[in-house]
Simulated assay, not measured.
Amino acid sequence: MKFSTRSRYALRLMAELACCAPDKPLPLKEISERQQLSLKYLEQIVTPLARAGLVKSERGSQGGYRLVKPAAEYTAGEILRAMEGSVAPIPCLESEVNECPLCGQCFTLPFWTGLDEVINQYMDSVTLADLAHSLRNIQDPDGQNPSAGCSALKNN
């Protein structure tokens, strides 16, 4: 299984938003500069996140994007699924009901089902707050610079 660059960047974008004050929108240009990512690419990435209801845009000179709910209420799995759709390791596990005509005689299905469960359990165990905490530690490893990156938010 391989995740797209869009998904990797979506996690980075969301972590940056999680580090900002909840009521303060963050311009994509600022995220682009902090994460050294193309602004045009971030514009494409934020669209499915907004469509999924994970972020909200605010227009105007003080506009940008902000999270819809507290960072601790998002999971990495939720964000990745918004970008990728299903993350099932095989096509017959992509829907709620396995409609594969061979599923009753597939001796490898329990392996794939177990792998799918492990992947989803792990992705859903990591919160956006966890990722934001990791970002804060990278941007300000000593915790000494209150203006470093996203350290404006300590309790999200």
Rank of each mutant, 00 (worst) to 15 (best):
M1A: 12
S4A: 05
T5F: 15
R6I: 13
R6N: 14
R8H: 14
Y9C: 07
A10K: 05
L11Q: 07
M14H: 10
C19V: 11
C19A: 15
A21T: 06
P22N: 09
P25F: 01
P25Q: 02
L28G: 04
K29G: 05
S32H: 08
E33N: 08
R34C: 06
R34H: 11
Q35L: 10
Q35C: 11
Q36W: 15
K40F: 14
Q44F: 13
V46P: 08
T47W: 07
P48A: 12
P48I: 14
P48G: 11
L49I: 02
R51Y: 13
R51P: 15
A52M: 03
A52Y: 04
A52W: 03
V55T: 07
K56F: 11
K56Y: 12
S57K: 09
R59L: 12
R59F: 09
G63N: 01
G64Y: 04
Y65I: 04
Y65P: 02
V68H: 03
V68D: 04
K69Y: 14
K69T: 12
K69E: 15
E73I: 07
E73F: 05
A76R: 09
I79R: 02
R81C: 09
R81P: 06
E84P: 12
E84H: 11
G85A: 01
G85W: 04
G85E: 00
S86W: 01
V87I: 15
A88Y: 02
I90W: 07
I90K: 05
C92S: 03
S95Y: 14
S95N: 12
N98G: 04
E99T: 13
C100N: 02
C100H: 09
P101E: 08
C103E: 14
G104T: 12
Q105P: 14
C106P: 00
P110V: 08
W112K: 00
L115E: 01
D116W: 09
E117K: 13
V118Y: 00
I119Q: 06
I119V: 06
I119H: 08
S125D: 01
V126K: 06
T127A: 05
L128N: 05
A129Y: 00
H133T: 15
S134D: 12
I138F: 12
I138D: 15
D142T: 13
N145L: 10
S147L: 08
S147R: 06
N155S: 14
N156K: 00
